[in-house]
Design a protein around this nucleic acid. Sequence first.
DNA 1: ATGTATGTAGACAGATCTGTATCGTTTTTC
DNA 2: GAAAAACGATACAGATCTGTCTACATACAT
Lengths: 185, 185
Amino acid sequence: MKRSEIRDHLLDTAIALFNKHGFHAAGVDLIIAEARVAKTTLYRHFPTKEALILAALQRRDEIVRAEMRSFVETRARDPRERLLLTFDYLEVWFAKDTFKGCPFISAAGEHGAKDDPVFQAAVHHKREVLEYLRELAVAAGIGRPEEIARKINLLHEGAVAVAQITRETSSAQLAKEMARALLAA
Amino acid sequence: MKRSEIRDHLLDTAIALFNKHGFHAAGVDLIIAEARVAKTTLYRHFPTKEALILAALQRRDEIVRAEMRSFVETRARDPRERLLLTFDYLEVWFAKDTFKGCPFISAAGEHGAKDDPVFQAAVHHKREVLEYLRELAVAAGIGRPEEIARKINLLHEGAVAVAQITRETSSAQLAKEMARALLAA
DNA sequence: ATGTATGTAGACAGATCTGTATCGTTTTTC
DNA sequence: GAAAAACGATACAGATCTGTCTACATACAT
C-alpha cells in the first residue's frame, strides 16, 4: 500500500469496526491489527482516538453523501423521482451484510452530550443530508419544500432504524411508498 | 431505601446512565456510585454487567410499553385516535431533558451482532411495540392493519431518530401529521 | 544519492474496567 | 430474639485500553 493511502485506509478500517462493534468497544489495537498498520503510524496521523473517530465520521459523511447524490442523479433527472430514488439507495445499503444501522445515530447514542464533538459531527451529517433533500424538493417545485424535505428525511430515519433492528431491506420500499403518497398529495 | 426496592433502583439508575453515557462508557463503578450502593450489592443481584444491561432493558421495555398504553388509553377510546396519540406520547418523551434517543436503538448500535442477547432484547422490544400498534390498527377496523402498523411504526422510529439529533420535540407532531394523512387515505 | 519523513515492531506506563474477597454492620425472617 | 441473609466499604486481582517510547527499516523529495 502506498503511504499516501494509509490515512484513508485507516479511516475506512476504523469506521467499519466502529460500525461493527461500537465506538468504545472497537479499540485502537483492534483497528491497527485489522488495518495491518503499526500503532505508531496511527498516532502519527491522529493525536487521539477521538480525533480518529471524528476524521472517520467526516470521511464517512463525505462518501455517503457523494454516493447518494451520484446514485440518484445517474438514475433520473426529475427531482421528484430523485427524491424517491434516495430510498433505493437506502435499500442497497441495507442489503450489505456489513449494515448495522447508521453510524451517525450510533455515534450520537454513545456520545450524547450536546457539546460533544462526536455528537456535533452526527448533527452536521444529518443537517447536510436534510439540506440535499431540501434542494431536491425545491427543484421539484413542490409547495412547502422545507416541510416535504423534513418528512422525507423522517422517513429515511425511520427506514434505517427499522432495518437496523429487523435486518431486512423491506423498510426502504415501505418508506418509499409512503414518500410517493406524500409527493402525490 | 427498603431492600426490596434496591434491585429496581439499580435498574433505573443503570438505564439512566446507559442512556446518558452509552452502555460501554457507563461503568459499574459509576452506576453503584450514582445508586449509592456497594459493589457487592450489585453483583449479588446481577452476575455480570451484561446481565444488568439485559435486566435494565427488560424493565425499560415493560415500563415504556405500559406507559404508552396508559397514555393513549386514558385519552381516547377510538383506536384511530389512540394510534395518533402514540405520537403525543413520544412528544412528551422528547421534551424530557434526559432524552438522548431510544435506548434500544443505542443498545443495538453498541451490540450489533445478531446473536447478541442485548441486540435480541432490542429486537424483542421493537416487536412488542409493533404488535401493540397492530392491535390498535385491527381494532380500528382499517384495511391492511399489518401494513398500517408497520408504517406507523416507521414514523415512530423516524421521529425518535430525528429528535435524537435535533433535540427538539417537533418531529413528533410532524410524524403525527403524516400518520393522520396515512389513516385518512 | 542522501537526508528527512514515515513506516514496522513491540515493550511499556498509567488509567480504567469487570469481577472477587474480606469483614463488619444491618435488616429480614422465623 | 436468634439465625440467616443482605448490605456497606474497600482493597485487590487480572484484563484491557489509550497513548508513549525506543530502535530500526523503508520510502520519498530535492
